[in-house]
């Protein structure tokens, strides 16, 4: 087993310091050690996107990330999105969530996109979310929701 390291990172805007096995999957660190269960495990191999988080603003799969790779980084999970993120309301209104297991990852992916491109085309949204599998919705309403959230006047924290 690995020797533990002292890991310092910014997690959901808060500085965090913890002693951790650097080869622990970030998904396990979040879910099992830190109780942040909003990131889900759908496949464990970076295919489904249910575990998506923002690493220094970029969407990554936390199942493919090691704790040691978080050193000095800023990590944001679904729990760290602002409570008034327009994506929440847009997803709920559009019917973009059904069983909900892919939804946190989908929202994180959409946030990553909108932070870079505040007004993406539907085609761009399709591409940007293609790493997040949903088996319930056929994606139609998810695309609707992201378009709707993009129309909300900006200026919100994210």
């Amino acid at each position: 087993m690995s020797t533990d390291i002292t890991l310092r990172l910014t997690l959901n805007g808060q500085p965090v310091e913890c002693v951790v096995d650097p080869t622990r999957r970030v998904l396990d660190l979040l879910r099992e050690d830190l109780g942040l269960t909003g990131s889900k495990e759908g496949c464990g191999e970076g295919e489904c996107g249910a575990c998506a988080v923002l690493l220094d603003g970029a969407m990554v799969n936390s199942c493919l990330l090691l704790a040691g790779q978080l050193q000095d980084a800023a990590l944001r999970t679904i729990e760290g999105l602002p409570t008034d993120d327009p994506l929440f309301e847009a997803f709920a209104r559009a019917g973009a969530t059904q069983c909900g297991i892919c939804t946190p990852g989908m929202v994180v992916a959409a946030r990553a996109l909108l932070d870079r491109e505040p007004a993406p085309s539907r085609e761009r949204i399709r591409e940007a979310l293609a790493g997040n599998l949903c088996r319930c919705t056929g994606y139609v309403r998810i695309l609707d929701a992201v378009e709707a959230a993009a129309r909300v006047p900006s200026g919100r924290a994210s």
Partner: peptide
């Protein structure tokens, strides 16, 4: 190369 999340890593 994979999805956006993969391409970022």
């Amino acid at each position: 190369t994979g999805s956006v999340a993969i391409q970022n890593r």
